[in-house]
C-alpha cells in the first residue's frame, strides 16, 4: 500500500482543506480566524514530516559514532519561524475582531455587511 505510506501527507492535505473550508464557509469572524490557524498548522505538519529520515535520530554528533543517520534539522528551524508568524497573524486578526465588535456590535460577517449598507 504505497498510498498509505504517505499518510502524513494525507493528513497534511486533509487538515489544510479543513482549515480552508472553515475560512470560506464560516460567517463568524472568530471561526474564520480559527480556520486560518488550522490552515497554517497543516503547513507546519508538512515541514515537520519532510525532515524525517527513516531510522534517523536527532542530529547531534557523538564521538565514536560514525554510521548514524540523522534527520534534517533545517525544516524544523524554518517552521519555528513560520509558527511565530502564524501566532502573530492570529493575534492581530483577533485584535481586529475585538475592534470590529466594538465598532459594529457584532462579529457575524453578514450583519457587518448589512450595517455597512445601511450607513
Amino acid at each position: 500500500m504505497e498510498l498509505l505510506g504517505y499518510y502524513n501527507y494525507w493528513v497534511f492535505a486533509i487538515v489544510l482543506m479543513v482549515g480552508f473550508y472553515a475560512v470560506i464557509v464560516r460567517n463568524n469572524l472568530i471561526k474564520k480566524l480559527l480556520g486560518l490557524a488550522i490552515f497554517q498548522s497543516a503547513v507546519f505538519l508538512m515541514y515537520i514530516t519532510m525532515d524525517k529520515v527513516e531510522g534517523g535520530t536527532a542530529p547531534i554528533i557523538q564521538e565514536g559514532v560514525t554510521d548514524q543517520i540523522y534527520s534534517n534539522p533545517l525544516p524544523q528551524v524554518l517552521i519555528l519561524t513560520a509558527i511565530v508568524v502564524g501566532v502573530s497573524t492570529t493575534a492581530l486578526g483577533l485584535a481586529i475582531v475585538v475592534r470590529i465588535k466594538e465598532a459594529y456590535g457584532t462579529i457575524e460577517e453578514d450583519d457587518i455587511i448589512a450595517k455597512d449598507r445601511e450607513s
Binding site: T89, G93, V97, I100, Y104, I113
Partner: peptide, 8 residues
C-alpha cells in the same frame, strides 16, 4: 476594520 480583516 472589515476591509483589513479581509486583507489579512
Amino acid at each position: 476594520l472589515p476591509a483589513v480583516l479581509k486583507y489579512l
